[in-house]
């Protein structure tokens, strides 16, 4: 298996701050890889280590097997879609897209033709003469994409590319990016703090916290089998059971995750745990019922068709033993 990007025990420290702390990853060629984490978790620094805007304090970053420490950004087979798009305000859309070709010394006619192809790819055929300021946010994003693709990079880096778009546009762009990645077969490395985005688009996800990778795996792994409490909390799908609570529920004394939709709440009945319903929220497809089980709160998702217990009711909570997923502490 050949890897597009490999991190070999990479650290990047800024003074006493360990932005990236001993990270090792291997990103497969042709994949769609997401780096997920809260702000300040080190994911953007990792992206910048690939593009060459940061250099590792320790360890090695390899791009297609080649150690890249001494390779400046302009010599790497990697291009970036920046978070704020970073379109050159003084150049037309066409010249923005053709920029990478211009600095290689490719003649004007050829580079403009290639730029038009790229604009067609992102469905902005007739926008070449405009200035970036005359475009909407979504259009700017496409120009940034076209510009980054014009050099035929082997890896495309995307830094929170959908962050500035509104919800509807963001969903449409998610599908388009995914389709584009399949069509071009380029490795995409994607940084985001939005777990929904990461899980729906990527085929591998690395979850970052405090400069380290806490879990790497397929979206399903991350969602179903969070390795730590942090992942469970951040991905946000599951209840986190403390060792004491797990014990009370009849499990081993360890941290566990328990997905909301794997539980049922029986009004007046008994179960592994019992408690009082504090709130019931109607969310369309499901109702979210929050139950106070002696100081801890658990969330139960009940499909819209079924009756939910009323607020204030006493309920028993039940689930199958396999629904409880054991995690590492803290």
């Amino acid at each position: 298996m050949s890897y597009a990007v490999e991190f070999d025990h990479v650290s990047r420290h800024f003074g006493t701050v360990r932005a990236v702390d001993n990270v090792s990853i291997a990103i497969e060629e042709g994949g769609f890889f997401a780096m997920l984490g809260p702000s300040g978790s080190g994911k953007t620094t990792c992206l910048r280590l690939i593009s060459g805007f940061e250099r590792p304090t320790a360890g090695h970053v390899r791009i297609f097997g080649e150690t890249s420490e001494d390779l400046p950004p302009n010599r790497r087979p990697v291009n970036t879609v920046f978070q704020d798009y970073a379109l050159f305000p003084h150049l037309s859309v066409r010249d923005n897209v053709a920029y990478g070709l211009m600095v290689q010394g490719i003649d004007k006619r050829t580079r403009h033709a290639r730029a038009e192809e790229m604009l067609a790819l992102v469905k902005l055929d007739s926008y070449g003469d405009r200035k970036p300021a005359q475009l909407s946010g979504g259009q700017r994003q496409r120009v940034a994409l076209a510009r980054a693709l014009v050099n035929h990079p082997r890896v495309l880096l995307l830094d929170e590319p959908l962050g500035a778009l509104d919800l509807k546009l963001r969903e449409a762009m998610q599908d388009e990016l995914k389709a584009l990645q399949r069509q071009l077969g380029i490795t995409f490395v994607f940084v985001t703090h939005d777990q929904g985005e990461a899980l729906s688009m990527a085929d591998r996800v690395a979850v970052f916290n405090d400069g380290r990778i806490v879990q790497e795996g397929s979206p399903e792994d991350i969602y179903q089998r969070p390795r730590t409490r942090f992942v469970a909390d951040f991905v946000g799908s599951a209840n986190v059971l403390s060792p004491a609570l797990s014990r009370r529920a009849g499990g081993p004394e360890a941290w566990h995750s328990l997905r909301a939709e794997a539980m049922e709440a029986i009004e007046g009945g008994s179960g592994r745990l019992s408690g009082t319903v504090t709130t019931v929220r109607y969310l369309g497809a499901v109702k979210r019922v929050t139950v106070d089980v002696g100081g801890d709160e658990l969330t139960v998702a009940i499909p819209a068709g079924q009756d939910a217990p009323a607020e204030g009711a006493t309920v028993g909570l039940n689930w199958t033993a396999t629904a409880m997923h054991r995690m590492e502490g803290a």
């Binding site: 400046p72 302009n74 010599r75 600095v103 290689q104 010394g105």
Partner: peptide, 13 residues
């Protein structure tokens, strides 16, 4: 730019 001798590029690196 392509035929420019490597000195600018090397300095840039």
């Amino acid at each position: 730019e392509a035929v420019r001798p490597g000195i600018a590029a090397r300095l840039s690196d």
